[in-house]
């Protein structure tokens, strides 16, 4: 046990880790929120993330520019989202299964491209950590506040900025109203002249874009490497977090923070050598997320048309 570590330092460390670790979950889960709000379940988030992670990484690997990498990841994410749109919206395929198909395709394709184009695990220089320095003084050096708020890279800030933005989009714009309407009652929306499938296309594509960015946040921001199947199922957790957040960006944010902070906590528990088997520690975030949702202060409001395809004149 290290005496230098004060309780405060540990708590700060846990929060700091939690905030950073939440980054990919927030992008992916907020993206999935758009998708589900419009009535489309996308189980393929993990596959899209892998494609985003690869294309982001490969672009940086070739050009050295993280910004280009981010754009590439977003573009490929949007494309994957569009594929899902065609299958799930236009052709009204069973959504639980189309996502799994997309996941398999993304996992296979990203690994194949990695094998063909790169071949071995390499490191790149991704987005740097911002320390907000002005003339020799860095905000990051401030006690407590500095560590808590000013030592992340731009993609982490982007994730948190995304939450109010998404809230605004969903709750304060006409488009957001349409998204919610087609997710809740597509027939009614259709009867007042909303093009249901077009709105769904947009929402799912945005979801795909954000999932692609979520992948890039791993490969060119948090880890700066690419490896086959590097998300390791993170995208599925992101889908679960949408349910945790009751389809609200803020709720999703809280879920992501809870999950990743508990994850950070369990790592600390192990690092500090507390007498707990590692497996039990690893279990904690999953267990606590269920328990937190079981607390009786909130009920989920599932979009009523979720997983239900819409076709004019049917139903």
């Amino acid at each position: 046990m290290n005496e230098d570590l004060t309780t405060l330092a540990i708590i700060l460390g846990i929060i700091h880790s939690g905030i950073r670790l939440a980054t990919p979950y927030i992008y992916a889960a907020v993206g999935e929120t758009f998708s589900q709000r419009s009535g489309v379940l996308n189980l393929g988030v993990d596959g899209i993330m892998l494609m985003g992670a690869f294309f982001g990484f490969y672009t940086v690997f070739e050009t050295g520019s993280p910004v280009l990498g981010l754009l590439a990841a977003a573009a490929v994410g949007a494309l994957m989202g569009l594929i899902l749109c065609v299958v799930s919206i236009t052709f009204q395929a069973e959504q639980g299964i189309s996502g799994i198909g997309l996941y398999m395709f993304g996992l296979g394709m990203s690994s194949l491209l990695f094998k063909t184009l790169i071949g071995s695990v390499e490191g790149v220089q991704g987005f740097p950590i911002l320390r907000f320095c002005m003339g020799g003084f860095c905000l990051a050096d401030l006690p407590i506040v500095g560590e808590l708020f000013f030592e992340y890279n731009i993609m982490t800030y982007g994730a948190y900025a995304l939450v109010p933005l998404s809230w605004y989009l969903l709750n304060r714009t006409t488009w957001g109203l349409k998204v919610r309407a087609v997710g809740q009652n597509p027939e009614a929306a259709d009867s007042v002249g909303v093009n249901v499938n077009r709105v769904r296309y947009a929402a799912v594509t945005i979801g795909g874009t954000l999932a692609g960015i979520a992948g890039a946040s791993l490969s060119i921001s948090l880890l700066n490497i690419f490896q086959e199947n590097m998300t390791n199922g993170l995208g599925f957790i992101a889908v679960a977090l949408v349910y945790f957040g009751s389809w609200r960006p803020v709720g999703v944010l809280l879920g992501a923070l809870l999950f990743s902070t508990v994850n950070a906590l369990q790592l600390w528990v192990q690092v500090l050598g507390l007498n707990i088997p590692s497996d039990v520690a690893v279990m904690m975030p999953y267990l606590l997320t269920i328990i937190a949702l079981a607390l009786p202060f909130r009920r989920a409001l599932q979009p009523r048309a979720l997983t239900k395809p819409f076709a004019r004149g049917e139903n």
Partner: peptide
Amino acid sequence: VLILAILGLVVLLVIT
């Protein structure tokens, strides 16, 4: 992984 990608396509197209 190439086969995995093709299988993914199979799943997507079959449900389509």
